[in-house]
Design a protein around this nucleic acid. Structure first.
Length: 302
DNA sequence: CGCCAGGCCTTAC
DNA sequence: GTAAGGCATGGC
């Protein structure tokens, strides 16, 4: 087990691990205590763990640094996945001067976008259709335990995210037994597609945003909304504003002029009102509205 | 019981 | 291209 630390002084802006990892952008991180998405804010020494390929990575806030321990050198992985080089102060400074956006900004200093592995993100958001955030995370955990590889990390065992080939070998009936419901065939079909031909991430990253979104909908269970999530949370696009029920409601209430009939038109209209990096704005607004009645997410003094 | 959740698919026009 | 209906599951 390797260990290391990243000084907060080396990161532009704050880092709020809970807001970043438990805001529904990624379902690939868990509190080591197992209390992920508990209403209580995690204790300050709480470890979060995830996997990347066969490696296990853990991180926690420790004073004025981010401490990590992992089966590999986690520093470059963490810098990428938590976007620790993003100049957060200048990003939020450019948010539009709208009350709901500014309220979200003030409530979650340190909320950062993520840049997660593509295949696990693709499958997570296929699962996300018509499901709540905590339950999506739970189902990802079931996929890990059923189809991933166990890794002993000392006092407990965690599981890697399953490879495409492994999930391609699962049956729809097996996945339905795990509780995936009608999303079960989407997972087997898309896993089979990825096992057979991969995901051309280099090509996707170089496509214009709307073309990349269209290209991703080739996968079964991936419509415009899920495609937007993959582009925003795994492929580093700045433009996507995934139009889920929360954001649609926010548009109706706070940006009614941006409401349109089609997804594509509403997407264009809200992007023009969310500032230079609409995806970042969206992540703040989503987390703010979804936790509007949970004061536990407000930063407490240590 | 009904309603909702980070929607997508097929079918019909 | 758009509209309608169906679809699993669990929490409240």
């Amino acid at each position: 087990m390797e260990r290391g630390a990243i000084p907060l002084s080396s990161i532009p802006g704050a880092v709020d691990l809970q807001a970043t990892l438990e805001s529904g952008q990624t379902f690939l991180w868990s509190r080591l205590s197992g209390e992920t998405y508990a209403t209580e804010r995690p204790s300050t020494d709480e470890w979060y763990w995830t996997t990347e390929g066969a490696d296990v990575i853990q991180i926690r806030r420790q004073g004025e640094r981010l401490a990590w321990r992992a089966t590999t050198d986690a520093a470059p992985i963490l810098r990428r996945r938590l976007r620790l080089t993003d100049d957060l102060p200048s990003i939020v400074e450019a948010f539009p001067d709208e009350p709901v956006v500014q309220a979200a900004r003030e409530r979650f200093p340190g909320l950062r976008l993520v840049s997660e592995p593509v295949f696990p993100t693709l499958l997570s958001f296929i699962l996300s259709a018509q499901m709540r955030v905590a339950r999506i995370h739970d189902l990802v955990g079931r996929l890990r335990r059923e189809y991933g590889e166990p890794v002993d990390i000392g006092d407990r065992t965690v599981h890697t995210f399953p490879e495409p080939e492994t999930l391609a070998g699962a049956t729809e009936a097996e996945l339905r037994e795990l509780g995936l419901g009608y999303r079960a065939p989407y997972i087997t079909e898309t896993a089979s597609m990825v096992a057979a031909e991969g995901i051309d991430t280099a090509r996707l990253r170089n496509l214009p945003y709307e073309e990349a979104r269209e290209a991703l909908t080739r996968f079964v269970g991936v419509g415009e909304k899920v495609a937007d999530c993959v582009l925003l949370f795994a492929l580093d696009f700045d433009e996507p504003v995934p139009l889920d029920t929360w954001i649609r409601t926010a548009i109706e209430e706070h940006f009614p002029a941006a409401a349109r009939d089609s997804y594509a038109e509403t997407s264009r209209a809200i992007r023009e009102r969310f500032g230079p990096r609409p995806g970042y704005t969206q992540t703040y607004v989503f987390h703010h509205l979804r936790t509007a009645d949970a004061d536990d997410f407000v930063v407490a003094d240590d």
